[in-house]
Design a protein around this nucleic acid. Structure first.
Lengths: 148, 148
DNA sequence: TTAAATTATGTAAGTGCTTACATAAATGGG
DNA sequence: CCCATTTATGTAAGCACTTACATAATTTAA
């Protein structure tokens, strides 16, 4: 699974350069989330994207340096910083829209035509691990020499 | 997929410490391969495991420092270094055998009971990408503004 | 009201890989 | 035989995350 996901990432990572628009692949999840839902706090994004907050903080810093995002304090909570898209960020998104559409379409085609059950299986794996972690499963099979 | 594989890795990475045996998770693929097939060269292992040769070289160095492996020149090719298990390495493997068995069993149970189609879908994904890369699929859907 | 506990974010350092670069041995063709 | 090309491995640096640590704001409980 890791090899496959690495493979897909590597395969797609050159597309932005080919497309002639400056954009880092790791920016995508955050930019897409901000476009969809508006200004968000670092930990909110981290939680939703399944990353740690320092990872999001680092990407946020990178996006701010590129001018695609800006940060402001949350009036309701002095600890929080809300990240949002700049006009430049929104314009970059519009430039990339056709590329992202093509990626979605290609993914959709692949899943529909060739891998009809993949998403269901991955969701089921997620659920199964929610119910019982892999390590718990392993430990249940071991002689009682390992702490629970 | 990446989140899931990360999740599984993180979940299992504490098992060695819990089990009370000193072993790094990234050693496993190489140690297992050496046990199964005997002494191997760096690039052979890299190719079979889907890693780059520097990655394997780094793990090899780590294993040698731990005393689990040793390296010798290949008599047939003066460039090649064959990595093999030391007696200490073989002993470490025997210590870990019950844990690895439990991991295999847990995996088997999960695949058989809850995710019967997962491996087939992942194999199919691999095949599909062999036939046509994801970026090629995307580019086929784009207006003709991107180099083929 | 105050202090302890919790939560938000930044920074530093580590991890496990990758790509880039370098050197040397082997191979193949003229 | 000689040389250009290919192949094997090591080292350096980069990448995208993680964990650890630190500071500060907010919340909760006494």
């Amino acid at each position: 699974m890791r090899r496959l996901s690495d493979r897909l990432d590597r395969d797609l990572s050159g597309l932005y350069a080919d497309y002639g628009v400056r954009f880092e692949p790791r920016w995508y999840p955050i930019v897409a989330l901000l476009e969809e839902t508006g200004p968000r706090a670092i930990t909110e994004m981290a939680s939703e994207l399944g990353l740690t907050h320092p990872a999001v903080s680092q990407v946020a810093k990178s996006l701010i340096e590129e001018g695609l995002c800006k940060k402001r304090a949350d009036k309701k909570d002095g600890r929080r910083h809300l990240l949002s898209l700049t006009p430049k960020g929104k314009k970059r998104i519009e430039q990339l829209r056709p590329l992202w559409r093509a990626v979605f379409q290609a993914t959709e085609n692949l899943l529909t035509d060739e891998l009809p059950g993949l998403m269901a299986e991955l969701d089921a794996l997620d659920q199964s691990l929610n119910e019982k972690s892999m390590s718990a499963r392993v430990k249940a099979l071991l002689p009682h020499e390992v702490d629970a």
